[in-house]
């Protein structure tokens, strides 16, 4: 296939909050190919969940698509009729949610929920086989259990099994490990990655943990202020970030600091946009700010094998790093 699996072009989405409209996405563009793992990284409020949910038109009713388009497997998601959308969701999409305890119906046994996700009345062997692919043993016991009787890690594996039940082409995982114990995060991520590789689907991981996703993704998209500010292969972006926000995220996150070194939190808070941002949304918190950052909206441009939305990318990539490169 030549067309990308997902093609999001200049997408603008706002939420009506009664008095005013808040923009969650302010011109986000993104292409996702078949058979790849893309991580979308950003703070809370950066628009990553909105972007992920928009791919299946799963946004709450207050959300309005103001401009741009989303095509998933050739279907125009924002304009498709309900039946076309239902087919697309059923045949092509799978979602893994942040919190497995709310992603499973507390009133149904696991077996029934998995069966519903598989589309009705699958044979019992098929259910057991699906669970074992998600690395769940003791399927007898799990199928009879109610969600509150499972541990968080097991519940998340059930959610993953349900997400891949219909062999989706696009799997969207919204903070799949955020609510799990640190000790099993890595295992659950590996399961997710292995299942993706086996099925040849594309996996989109939405996360705020840049270092964690770096170990599992091929490409990374960094979101800020409702736009994708840097998009490129994980190795390139992680080793030499070209956007000051990516750079700040790397220095703010714990992971491989040396003894005595300080973590640098990013000053300020993310912006709340009410209309199209006509400057750089990150300017207020940026160490590389110059006058045109406040007057001119940066556009996406190719830069050293990636796309970046920054007037000062050359200066950012040339700046001395605080020696954080021996990661990976």
């Amino acid at each position: 296939m030549t067309a990308p699996l997902v093609d999001i072009a200049d997408l603008v989405i706002g939420y009506d909050t009664g008095m005013r409209q808040v923009r969650a996405l302010d011109g986000a563009s993104l292409r996702i190919d078949e058979d790849e793992t893309l991580a979308i990284v950003g703070e809370s409020g950066s628009g990553k969940t909105t972007l992920g949910m928009a791919a299946g038109r799963l946004l709450p009713p207050e959300a309005k698509v103001i401009g741009g388009s989303i095509h998933v497997a050739g279907v125009d998601v924002t304009r498709a009729d309900d039946e076309a959308l239902r087919r697309l969701r059923h045949d092509k999409l799978g979602f893994v949610f942040q919190n497995p305890t709310t992603a499973l119906d507390p009133t149904l046994r696991i077996g029934r929920q998995v069966a519903l996700a598989m589309g009705g009345r699958p044979p019992p062997e098929a259910i057991a086989e699906l669970l074992s692919r998600a690395e769940l043993n003791e399927s007898e016991r799990i199928l009879r259990a109610f969600p509150h009787e499972l541990s968080g890690g097991m519940a998340q594996r059930v959610v993953i099994a349900m997400a891949i039940a219909r062999r989706p082409h696009l799997l969207i995982a919204d903070e799949p490990t955020a609510s799990l114990d640190a000790s099993i995060r890595e295992k659950v991520m590996s399961t997710l990655g292995r299942l993706r590789a086996e099925s040849g689907a594309s996996l989109v991981i939405l996360s705020h943990d840049l270092r964690m996703v770096a170990r599992h993704a091929d490409r990374v998209a960094v979101m800020y202020g409702g736009r994708i500010v840097e998009l490129g292969s994980v190795t390139r972006v992680m080793q030499a970030p070209a956007h000051p926000y990516t750079r700040a995220l790397l220095t703010a996150a714990a992971g491989n600091e040396r003894p005595g070194e300080r973590l640098c939190p990013i000053p300020g808070t993310p912006p709340i946009l009410e209309s199209r941002c006509e400057a750089c949304a990150y300017a207020d918190r940026c160490a590389f700010r110059e006058t045109r950052c406040d007057t001119e909206r940066p556009e996406a441009r190719p830069f050293l094998g990636r796309e970046v939305v920054c007037h000062r990318a050359e200066a950012v990539i040339g700046a001395p790093t605080q020696a954080r490169q021996e990661d990976r």
Partner: peptide
């Protein structure tokens, strides 16, 4: 309705009536 399993059911292609009777009503 804001919980994941309702969204998951919608993704699985469940009709509005089915979501209401199978997932919402027991809850």
């Amino acid at each position: 309705a804001g919980r994941g399993f309702v969204t998951a059911a919608e993704v699985a292609g469940a009709s509005t009536l089915r979501v209401m009777l199978v997932h919402l009503l027991p809850n």
